[in-house]
Simulated scan of single mutants.
Amino acid sequence: MSQSNLWQLHTETGDFAELCNALYQREIALLAKGDFANVQSIQARLESLSYYITRTAHAMVKVIGQGHSPLMLDTQNASWSAKQSKRMPSSGQETEQECANTISWYSQKDIYVGLVVPVLLTDHIIIDCIDRIDLDKQRIRTNVSGWFSLAVDELVNQQQGANKRLLKPNKKIMTSACTGHCWQGNNKQLPIIPTLRELLLSCSINWKNFKKPLAI
């Protein structure tokens, strides 16, 4: 089957149409509440909206159809779903040894710009991607969350009271990030639906090897 036929097959499914509808409703609501500096800013967002919604819906249908994702697809809400653990799955990455393991994972040669990575915020984990690597200064920058140090002593200090933290990906952490699971203390809260950008990034995750993303 050719790529064009595959695309046509996905766009003709009910799931694809339902995903597009849910994504449009959510994005239009966000735009309506947005604070834009000028008319040109919102025009640019609207101009690209169709492309990104179509691309995201296609990617979500494709990864499920080809069995690439262990998550369940909620077409009505245009989101991923999975059973939520009682506690945030980042537990255990706060110790000095685990910080050293995280640094080792991010310091290898097979880390590159564009790789999807998890970032811990106060009460949930988001999906981000690397946009700059500066090994001379032992740091990595992600597109949304900014710079993170790869020095052990600085990373340990970041773990204590920081409002954001770079995590080493594993299945539980990436599941939490993709599904928007949220906690307050040790209590589960209602999920936060990931952004359109995060949903698109989630479709490139290779759950068998987080350093080798899928070509979706």
Rank of each mutant, 00 (worst) to 15 (best):
S149I: 13
E98G: 05
Q158G: 02
I192S: 01
E198V: 15
A151I: 14
Q93H: 04
L190M: 08
N5V: 10
D153M: 13
I111G: 00
I64H: 05
Q138T: 02
S85H: 05
D35R: 04
C99M: 12
I130Y: 01
P169C: 12
L135C: 00
V63C: 10
A17H: 13
A29V: 06
W207V: 03
M72A: 12
V117E: 00
L49K: 07
L30N: 05
G146K: 05
C178I: 13
K188S: 06
K211N: 09
T179W: 01
C129V: 11
Y106R: 06
N206Y: 07
Q3R: 09
C203D: 06
S69T: 15
D123V: 01
A100M: 12
A57I: 15
A82R: 10
G14S: 08
E154P: 00
A82E: 05
E96I: 15
D131S: 02
Y106A: 00
R87T: 13
T95N: 12
G34W: 04
Q43W: 10
L167Y: 04
I205Y: 03
W105F: 15
H58Q: 06
C182M: 07
T13L: 09
W105S: 11
F36P: 15
T122M: 13
C129Q: 11
Q43Y: 10
G67E: 05
K164I: 12
H124Q: 03
Q158K: 10
G14P: 04
S81D: 05
T175M: 14
S79G: 05
Y106G: 04
R139M: 05
W207L: 00
Q8N: 13
V63K: 11
Q76A: 15
R139Y: 00
A29L: 11
I28H: 03
K164G: 05
Q84A: 09
N21V: 03
T102C: 14
I127T: 06
W7F: 13
L155F: 08
A177V: 14
A78N: 07
Q184C: 05
H58R: 10
Q40M: 13
M174V: 08
I111P: 02
T11W: 03
Y51Q: 12
V39Q: 09
F16A: 14
L121M: 10
R139Q: 09
I192N: 03
L167D: 06
G65N: 10
E27G: 01
G65T: 07
D134Q: 08
S107V: 14
M88E: 07
T56Y: 05
I42Q: 04
K86R: 03
L214E: 07
Q66A: 12
I125W: 01
I205C: 05
D123H: 09
L23E: 01
Y51A: 09
G14M: 01
Q84E: 08
N163K: 11
V152N: 10
I133Y: 01
A29H: 04
D110G: 00
E18Q: 14
L46P: 07
N170R: 05
F210N: 06
K83F: 02
K171Q: 07
T142Q: 03
H68L: 15
Q138P: 00
A29M: 08
I126G: 01
N163V: 15
R132T: 07
V152T: 14
P194R: 07
D15Y: 02
N101R: 15
S107N: 08
I111C: 13
C178A: 15
E18L: 12
T102H: 01
N163Q: 07
N21K: 14
M60G: 08
